[in-house]
Amino acid sequence: MKLKQRLLASAALALALVNPLNAAEPYRVGYNNWIGFISFFVAQENGAFEKAGLDVVGKSFNAPGEGLVPLLSGNLDAHLTTLDSVILKAANAPGKLSIVSLVDTSAGADALVAKKSIKELASLKGARIGVTIGECNDVLLGKALEKAGLSRKEVNITNLDPDAAGAALKAGSVDAAVTWEPWISQLAGNSGANVLFSTADTPNLLLDCVAVSTNDKRAEETKKFIAVLDETTKFVRENPEQAAKLVSKTIEVPADEIVDMLTKLKLYDSAESKAQMADTVVTIGEELSAFFKAQDIISKDVDISEILKPDYLP
């Protein structure tokens, strides 16, 4: 090797030893701007990922399922998404996805919200409803219509992602919207809209999780990522006000509103993830799979037990 080449190689090695984050590709994580992912946002803001030796780069998507395609194509290393989104994708790509951790479950942070004049579920007959067809909000709408004794044919459904649905209700272009926080609080507070049905009425229906490809070539980094989320979740629980201040600018919501929204969630640490993945998640997964099959969204049931990989958890 020529002297110049040896010097360049030595310099590169020295740089890698001084700053190991520069020696590896970034760990790429997909997410959407959902309050339930607060532990991820906090870890980005307080440097927890860097302290664990991870160079985490986030990629934002409008809806929970959107990041699963780039995850499968190798353009993401992990995706923060919903259980139902994984089930939908797994139906068409069996054996390709794994759920390695739970993040949270919504307990009022997703809701069917209607304009001021619609005060009960039965009054939705003939209403224009914005919802993300075929994803988690559609499942919630199905539960609400079932409770109201209405069929999907008795309402007019427009396919909108949760943010767009909230904006459409605010603008008056739909009569009701299946949306999430912070839209729920904003619509109910500023527009006098009515929360007709929420995840508080159907516990554990909407679960958020960390999904990876079954061909996970960065398993050790994934385990570090989950360990950081675990520790950060505990921090958020113990310090909600401090956590809210850290992420207020990131998710564009005032800190006091974030603290209030956290009361509508159950954040899972790793121990709780293990317990839920051994029992509740399987049951809920079977229910979601059956719902999607009944709606002809998928053609066969998905065995959720084959997707769950709790061995990644610390």
Rank of each mutant, 00 (worst) to 15 (best):
190 N>W: 04
219 A>N: 04
190 N>P: 09
203 P>M: 05
135 E>A: 15
190 N>K: 05
229 L>N: 00
171 A>T: 05
300 K>I: 12
308 L>F: 02
276 Q>A: 15
170 K>I: 11
127 A>H: 02
153 K>V: 10
30 G>E: 02
98 S>D: 15
57 V>I: 12
280 T>W: 06
68 L>W: 12
90 A>V: 05
34 W>V: 04
186 Q>L: 06
194 N>M: 14
169 L>D: 00
10 S>D: 01
158 T>L: 15
60 S>D: 10
176 A>K: 07
193 A>D: 07
2 K>I: 11
185 S>Y: 03
75 N>P: 09
62 N>E: 14
155 V>K: 03
277 M>G: 14
42 V>T: 09
4 K>L: 14
205 L>C: 02
100 V>C: 06
231 E>P: 04
123 S>T: 02
284 I>R: 14
275 A>V: 07
19 N>P: 07
158 T>C: 09
268 Y>E: 03
265 L>M: 04
146 E>N: 01
245 K>H: 03
300 K>E: 10
148 A>N: 00
233 T>N: 08
153 K>F: 05
44 Q>S: 09
224 K>V: 09
241 E>H: 11
156 N>S: 15
159 N>R: 11
254 P>G: 09
229 L>R: 03
283 T>Y: 10
207 L>M: 08
110 D>L: 00
263 T>N: 09
93 A>S: 15
280 T>R: 08
210 V>P: 08
47 G>F: 07
289 S>M: 10
15 L>E: 14
183 W>A: 06
64 P>V: 13
299 S>K: 15
250 T>W: 05
100 V>I: 07
195 V>D: 02
254 P>Q: 05
293 K>W: 12
305 S>Q: 11
183 W>R: 00
41 F>P: 05
20 P>D: 12
26 P>T: 06
284 I>D: 01
251 I>S: 04
60 S>T: 13
92 N>Y: 13
287 E>D: 07
173 S>Q: 08
102 L>G: 12
172 G>D: 13
135 E>H: 15
193 A>C: 06
214 T>C: 14
224 K>A: 14
57 V>W: 12
50 E>P: 10
181 E>Y: 00
179 T>W: 01
176 A>F: 01
224 K>C: 11
189 G>Y: 03
13 L>P: 01
300 K>L: 13
236 V>K: 07
49 F>M: 08
213 S>K: 12
233 T>A: 04
47 G>A: 09
299 S>G: 15
258 I>V: 02
242 Q>R: 10
313 L>R: 04
217 K>I: 09
108 G>Y: 02
313 L>F: 06
142 G>H: 00
259 V>A: 12
136 C>L: 09
72 L>F: 12
270 S>V: 01
92 N>P: 05
146 E>C: 06
296 D>M: 12
125 K>A: 01
207 L>I: 03
36 G>E: 13
91 A>D: 14
192 G>R: 04
101 S>P: 05
82 T>D: 15
51 K>P: 07
54 L>V: 08
258 I>L: 05
284 I>Y: 08
226 I>N: 07
60 S>I: 11
77 D>K: 10
60 S>F: 11
252 E>A: 10
110 D>Y: 02
73 S>N: 13
192 G>A: 05
88 L>D: 13
1 M>Y: 10
277 M>S: 08
26 P>S: 10
303 D>W: 03
261 M>D: 15
311 D>A: 01
14 A>K: 03
310 P>Q: 09
301 D>K: 11
256 D>R: 13
60 S>N: 15
262 L>Q: 07
300 K>S: 14
247 V>A: 08
